[in-house]
Design a binder for these strands. Structure first.
Lengths: 337, 337
DNA sequence: TTGAAAGCGCTAACAG
DNA sequence: CTGTTAGCGCTTTCAA
């Protein structure tokens, strides 16, 4: 990158024959600039194609009008959330920047603390944290957490009714006649994962089915971990006839594992997922899953954050949206008719 | 936001009883710091939870190791691309930041020039431009364009075989017996839109069908514009029996418009889309569409950009990936059997 | 081995 | 109305 090729405020000032302060005033529409000077500076700005450096500006001003969305990775869930966030940002006057920690969060717990430290106060006025790995990120800037970490926290949070969702999925399988129902659990540090598992256990218990712990394996919301765990789960002689996976990614991985083992879905194993990301409809067979309104969660998170930044009192500290069952074709009656 | 609550290098220096310069050296692992001092500073950094401000750093250093992805909006196409970009970024040592112009690009042509000006040189080392609205963004930082603007350009570009895709879609419809085939075109400033339309025209011509210009309407890749255009197109007494929409979003909008008009898809109108975003499988009926490998495009774009930033010669200046037809259920034989 | 000072691009007081 | 100056948080000479 050649030095000096970027147009700075000094270039504009020099070309217009004024000081940088004057140019700054023109840019920020401050009072005290002669109409003629104003016009001349504006012309030079146009001519040179000058735009103020966001970085330099935010180092001075503490308000930047950009909000950050910090995600562990860019995968179906987080990108779906981004669509909702984008919907909500329009017309607010804020801009959106997304930071991705680049997956593999396992080897870097606390990435959001790091990112927040690096960005907040400068660059962003507030942040939405998606599936954070820690509970307490105390910062001066407003923060909203989506699908938060377990444990008590003073953060504002958005989530969906994971407990009910877990129950719904399991009850569906029970209703189809399954009794040996396995579960691929999620990222144990997230509330959502714990609640989905709890819903699973509650539903089984309510139906008088004892949980066989050998049928519960960790999928960690991760496709690779899930595919291994699912293979293991489905390999035994006494394998489950149905599997509830804690998210769609794991459910898809389960179908993959089943296929590798020569098992057909849903004829030999039924699979139910969680999330209802668009990919769940693409998979073969189309996935029966629990819908959580991901886009709406992204929207609410941004709305809440913007209100906070504007100094308004939030009307609620924890928002929980509804979940519901979406029946497609990956689960069917047992024993097979 | 309370002032002074952010931990800065000065806080660390004060607490460790050294100068900021020394702290900086410790952070950057420069030579010339006593082992003992080093340890003490490190301890304070840990204690205070200090992280260097990305903004301040990048104002000084011209290298930041972050690359930017500039998108017009966060919708199915761009988010799909992001997934590929995220795949490619792992292990490169670069971080990813996504900037969204917040849709409604129509009222702001040249958003990417503005963003680039605001970010490049500071904050990002290079950028991927997704569906840019202008052709010449000359910058000191490396740039790769995905689905580029029309007209000659010196940018490195990634796209897919849009001409062939347009032909494939139209030939499929012709093969089903359709002759009155309408088209909902895309954003006319993008090469992809022009080529898809050209493919449509070529296929019709090759089949000896004259293009009825009243059957060609502008959808602009935009759901709202598309739904209106589709309604118009399908309202006439002499309506088309099939519509090729320039992207899946428009195709889904077409199905919506048809439904509003009391027309069934595919019984009364066949619809074919373009992109094969996950949403295309979710729609009712599942969309027959042209697949372009969006994730792979995102991957290639990032790979190319990283190579460029590292000063390597790119092996190619324009990468065009394959397109293929995906038959689902939104198009069927005409006349209906 | 350490620190003082300059400066990245910008804005805000304050003088002129 | 305009320019000078200081400083945001950081890194990098250069002296001490």
């Amino acid at each position: 990158m050649q030095p000096s090729s970027r147009v700075t405020i000094r270039d504009v000032a020099a070309r217009a024959g004024v000081s940088v302060a004057t140019v700054s005033k023109v840019i920020n529409q401050r009072y005290g600039v002669a109409a003629e000077t104003n016009a001349r500076v504006l012309a030079v700005i146009e001519e040179l194609g000058y735009e103020a450096s966001l970085v330099a500006q935010s180092l001075r001003n503490h308000r930047t009008n950009v909000i950050g969305i910090l995600v562990a990775d860019l995968e179906p869930f987080s990108t779906e959330l981004l669509k909702g966030a984008a919907d909500a940002i329009r017309g607010t006057g804020f801009e959106l920047v997304v930071y991705s920690a680049g997956g593999r969060t396992s080897d870097h717990v606390g990435w959001e603390r790091r990112y927040l430290s690096r960005l907040s106060g400068t660059l962003i006025d507030g942040a939405v944290l998606v599936t954070p790995t820690v509970t307490n990120v105390q910062y001066d800037a407003p923060i909203v957490a989506v699908d938060p970490h377990t444990g008590p926290s003073d953060l504002l949070t958005i989530d969906s009714d994971n407990l009910k969702g877990g129950r719904l999925a399991t009850e569906h399988l029970l209703g189809l006649g399954h009794r040996r129902i396995g579960m691929l659990t999620g990222r144990s540090d997230l509330q959502s994962a714990q609640l989905r598992e709890q819903g699973y256990r509650q539903a089984l218990q309510a139906a008088g089915v004892t949980v066989d712990e050998s049928l519960v394996a960790v999928g960690a919301y991760d496709p690779e971990i899930a595919v291994d765990a699912a293979r293991e789960l489905l390999s035994g002689p006494d394998r489950p006839t149905a599997v509830f996976a804690a998210n769609d990614i794991s459910a898809i991985a389960t179908i993959e594992a089943a296929t590798q083992l020569g098992l057909r879905v849903p004829e030999d194993v039924s699979v139910v997922g969680f999330d209802n990301v668009p990919e769940s409809a693409l998979c073969v067979p189309p996935l029966t899953t629990v819908d959580q309104p991901i886009r709406r969660m992204g929207q609410r998170a941004v709305e809440l954050l913007v209100a906070l930044i504007r100094g308004e009192q939030p009307d609620s500290f924890h928002v929980t949206l509804e979940t519901s069952l979406v029946v497609r074709q990956s689960a069917r009656a047992f024993p097979s008719p």
